[in-house]
């Protein structure tokens, strides 16, 4: 569209960039206050804390039983990632390769858990899980988290699978490979980048998934984000710096995996997938 010409257009562009900058600066400052506070000794009525220390990390580690919480978090996340791949990838393959009657209905079924917010379906789901005896256990947390991640893996994988040339599969079948061998020797190696991307996104989403875990977790099955919520909720019981130390641990856990994920996926993919399906 060429260069901006008139003064009003330039002013408009400058105003937009100023707005974007304002947003980012405020966001960064918000993160910075959390990090600085977690290292501060005392911070009252000044720009920066009176002194710096790392002791809040030790006290947060003990007070909030972070070792247990982190173990639970990684058990939940690991199980969710593995199970959503086992359910999701074969289903995506079926949807990518076959045009069976009722396929649109099946896709709609997979879209709903992604479009309906977890708060809305979380309470009925938690009720059912408690009745089955899974509520309050780590399995309840894993099952609840799988509800949005299985459809997520399916919808992310379908376009990846459609890119694979079906003649490669036909060739494997001619040489006598069954569906199982086809998956192990042909599809999984070809789809590795797509599977990796989908699973990393599932991983990041599950670490940050608050609502479903909050509704189904018992005292021994809290993940990091739920433990953080309870700590902030009961602020005043513990030192603020201790809570912020835990918040930093949470941020590092999330951002570490996010950075890895971003090496494999375009950020817009993280939100755009559901919308592409919805727009049809």
């Amino acid at each position: 569209m060429g260069q901006d010409k008139t003064i009003s257009e330039r002013l408009w562009a400058a105003a937009i960039w100023a707005g974007v900058l304002f947003f980012i600066v405020n966001f960064m400052a918000m993160i910075a206050t959390v990090v600085i506070n977690s290292f501060g000794t005392r911070w009252l009525g000044t720009w920066l804390p009176a002194g710096f220390t790392t002791r809040w990390y030790r006290s947060a580690w003990d007070e909030f039983q972070l070792a247990d919480v982190l173990t639970t978090t990684f058990q939940v996340v690991g199980a969710v990632v593995l199970l959503s791949a086992l359910f999701g990838v074969p289903a995506a393959y079926s949807l990518a390769r076959r045009n069976f009657p009722g396929k649109q209905l099946v896709i709609l079924l997979f879209l709903l858990p992604l479009m309906i917010p977890p708060i809305t379906f979380g309470i009925p789901l938690a009720t059912v899980l408690y009745q089955l005896g899974a509520g309050g256990t780590i399995w309840g947390v894993i099952i609840a988290n799988l509800v949005p991640t299985v459809p997520f893996v399916i919808l992310v994988m379908i376009p990846f699978i459609e890119q694979v040339d079906p003649r490669i599969e036909a060739a494997a079948r001619v040489f006598g490979a069954g569906t199982g061998r086809l998956f192990v020797y042909v599809l999984v190696p070809l789809l590795a980048p797509g599977i990796l991307a989908a699973l990393l996104l599932v991983l990041v989403r599950t670490i940050a998934m608050f609502e479903l875990t909050f509704f189904t977790a018992g005292p021994d099955s809290q993940t990091l984000v739920v433990a953080l919520y309870y700590a902030v909720y009961a602020a005043g019981v513990r030192a603020g710096q201790s809570i912020d130390a835990m918040a930093v641990v949470y941020m590092i856990t999330t951002l570490f995996w996010l950075l890895i994920a971003l090496r494999f996926v375009d950020p817009t993919q993280m939100v755009a997938r559901a919308k592409q399906e919805a727009a049809r």
Binding site: S94, V147, V150
Partner: peptide
């Protein structure tokens, strides 16, 4: 288009039906 490959979608459908639609 209903064969062995199509059936691969069944576990995921049952999962979402059982843990999303049913609740």
């Amino acid at each position: 288009d209903i064969d062995g490959v199509t059936l691969l979608v069944v576990p995921a459908v049952l999962f979402v039906l059982g843990l999303f639609a049913y609740p």
